[in-house]
Write a protein that binds this DNA or RNA. Structure first.
Lengths: 156, 156
DNA sequence: TGATAACCTCGTCAATAGTTGAGGTTCGAT
DNA sequence: ATCGAACCTCAACTATTGACGAGGTTATCA
């Protein structure tokens, strides 16, 4: 193969090698998920480490994590070089915690539904699944308290 | 209590009792998630069974399931009366399958990440997490194959 | 030195899940 | 009968996550 894998990538190369569209590369950069520099002629250039970042981003998205939060998590990973073991460790720790959290909540949901089948919860009057919202509802109009329980991220 | 729980509800009552905004009730109706009838004067009326539907909708959303799919699942539940045991059973079976599916995929993801920490996958050349996308990317541009693996719902 | 492939910005569009507001109608209580 | 609360429709706007095209510039190959 004449083409040696370049350490510096153009947008097009990033797109091709990461499997995302060029527009998406732009988009991710605009959102601060990835970062590179520009040539004299204003064209984007990226360190190959960006490929890993993008891989991580896609993984995270598969888990349903919004870009904004992915960005926060990625803040620990360097843009300009392939992460070393420590970078990576720190990152994955947080990451796994996020996933665990999601999984836990999903499991709860599933098990609660299961118990609802068994408990004849058709009356729905004291169903553990329904109540969190209903209590709120009964209490009056008030501001919409969306159950975004997942937004409980304070700094580390 | 002077107010007996009405069997027929106005939008406002639905909103108050279910904890969602009136505009959201409208929205759900427009999307076919709930259903009612109109008075002479064109105002919405709902059977109280709608409260259960809405409760279910919110539960499903907590699990990250898009409204379109919730609607499909809810198609098995009657709009006009509180579901009986059979309705409910049928529904929850499908439901649980969906949740299980999501949980499974999330677990896979988590475990793969864990294994990546251990396996020194920093080289990232054969990381099981990265490859699905990368293989695609390497093969050429082609149409964007978004990994919405969750869209694999054919009819029952 | 061109040609043309790849790149640039910026604006628009799509789908999801709603919220808000304008302008007008109906309901229910007095 | 009248008043105000609740309701109606419709359009526009929010945010997220991008895709896509127009019009113009840069890089690279021969």
């Amino acid at each position: 193969m004449p083409k040696k894998p370049a350490a510096v990538l153009t947008v097009g190369e990033v797109a091709r090698r990461s499997g995302i569209a060029v527009s998406t590369v732009h988009f991710y950069e605009a959102r601060g998920l990835i970062e590179g520099w520009r040539t004299e002629g204003n064209q984007r250039r990226y360190h190959r480490a960006v490929l890993r970042r993008i891989a991580i981003i896609r993984i995270a998205q598969r888990a349903g994590i919004p870009l904004a939060r992915i960005r926060e998590a990625l803040a620990d990973l360097p843009h300009d070089h392939v992460p070393n073991a420590r970078d990576w460790q720190k990152f994955t720790d947080e990451w796994r915690a996020m996933l665990d959290d999601r999984i836990t909540r999903l499991l709860q949901l599933r098990d609660q539904i299961a118990s609802c089948i068994g408990c004849g919860c058709l009356s729905l009057e004291d169903c553990p699944l329904r109540n969190p919202d209903d209590r709120l509802g009964e209490k009056g109009p008030g501001p919409r308290r969306l159950e975004l329980a997942e937004n409980h991220h304070e700094g580390t």
